[in-house]
Nucleic acid binder design. Structure first.
Lengths: 240, 240
DNA sequence: AACGGAAAGCTATCGTCGATAACGATGCTG
DNA sequence: CAGCATCGTTATCGACGATAGCTTTCCGTT
């Protein structure tokens, strides 16, 4: 007459329980951040006891890492099902966008995995992501596109992509400058490969930006004219 | 016969106590990370009681933010004492390196401020850093060096620099690829600035002249808007 | 079919943490 | 001197991470 222990005699009941705990924990993290992941909340929601939780995951850190790894694994499972694109550059772009997508879909998990650096601990989840990145960088190198060492390219990509996602997560979710991700991605490609720029640099934008910046120091304009001019310059700037 | 309450009747004793608490808290964070910052450890090391701590900082989050702000403030105080370098590009590089230096000097504080995104909360410490960055980007724009909008340049710089520092902090401190910081810095400069200034003469007039010259190549403007913009640019140009 | 060992479950508990209520002491003000 | 505000002090609450010790259940062996 307990809650619902699925089957006492199930041979793979352990794995079943473990999956259920991970599912519950992932939901708690997604809803309330890492602070909401308390052992008591997990055991209550999963219908188990605290000692069971500790037998499964060792301690709370183990649970957290298991949640992170499972979340990342379930995300890359969809992406990695298809073999990598033959174009290494396109594959690199897709990998970048996928990583950004994971961050936006699982803000708390992303911040836990990549927002709390600790040289001592090696996170299996972070490792998995790094391996995927290394493969894509290696493909670039094989294609002769890399202008820096593989290590440098990998580190620069990982660092900038992580920074972009954290910056995006710090904006209100209904006002995220998602363009920031693609702009940075192309900047990274520019920095590590010989690939030609995807978009040519327009002429007027630079001057418009410069004038916009010093607009406050202009004279001879009415307030209305200045406001109108600012709007026009902003539009030209964004065309870049 | 207590430990050492500095002076019961001191008029500015409150500020004195607050500073002492901040100092103790900063030391605890630096030595043991954010987990070591418990209210009990702080009150014991500072020789005060828990209610005093809560009267000073509201709650633990308030204490944490105060520590972060004080740490960042004490760091930028040294740097900002001198006025910015006249060369905006050099000033930008120095700002980047200073930010990286702060991160390496205060790993725990950096991770707390920039590694845990939360759109709801506005961290005063993070704001201070952002203001400093905005000034430097603005100087680039005024000099006609910017090829993207100020907003984009600021966001890209902030995101990548944060990512680089977090990546560096994730390496063992005796094997940090510090070159990663400068490589990324130059990549960012490549991405957001022109190699050569876009405007020959700095200031509004020069930018207006440059934009007026390339006005025919602008897109996204109606004929009426283009005509109006031309008139405004002509008036600004003549102010030179 | 009976038995022994192993694995898992359960209850109860410990020490720590963040936070606060309630009281007392002190100094300033009118 | 009375009143008030500020600050220090004690005691306590509920929640948390973690664990000891006992009980139950299951499976393979004899």
């Amino acid at each position: 007459m307990t809650i619902l222990p699925p089957k006492p005699g199930d041979p793979n009941a352990s794995q079943d329980v473990r999956d259920r705990v991970l599912q519950v924990a992932a939901r708690l993290v997604a809803e309330g951040g890492r602070a909401a992941l308390t052992t008591r909340a997990v055991v209550a929601a999963a219908g188990i006891q605290q000692p069971t939780l500790y037998r499964l995951f060792g301690d709370k850190t183990g649970l957290l890492e298991a949640v992170a790894e499972a979340g990342l694994a379930s995300y890359v499972a969809d992406k990695a099902s298809a073999e990598p694109d033959p174009d290494p550059l396109l594959d690199f772009r897709m990998g970048w966008d996928s990583h950004v997508g994971f961050g936006l879909a699982h803000p708390a998990l992303f911040a836990i995995i990549w927002g709390n650096p600790d040289p001592a601990r090696v996170s299996p989840a972070a490792n998995a992501g790094r391996v995927a990145l290394r493969r894509k960088v290696q493909a670039l190198a094989v294609a002769g596109l890399l202008r820096v060492s593989e290590t440098k390219a990998e580190r620069l990509t990982h660092a900038t992509c992580t920074g972009v996602v954290l910056a995006l997560l710090d904006m209100p979710d209904d006002d995220r400058d998602i363009e920031l991700a693609s702009i940075t991605r192309e900047a990274v490609i520019q920095a590590i490969t010989f690939a030609a720029p995807a978009t040519a640099t327009p002429g007027p934008a630079g001057a418009a930006i410069a004038l916009r910046a010093s607009l406050a120091h202009t004279t001879g304009l009415t307030p209305g004219e200045r406001l109108l001019l600012a709007e026009l310059l902003d539009r030209i700037s964004e065309q870049a």
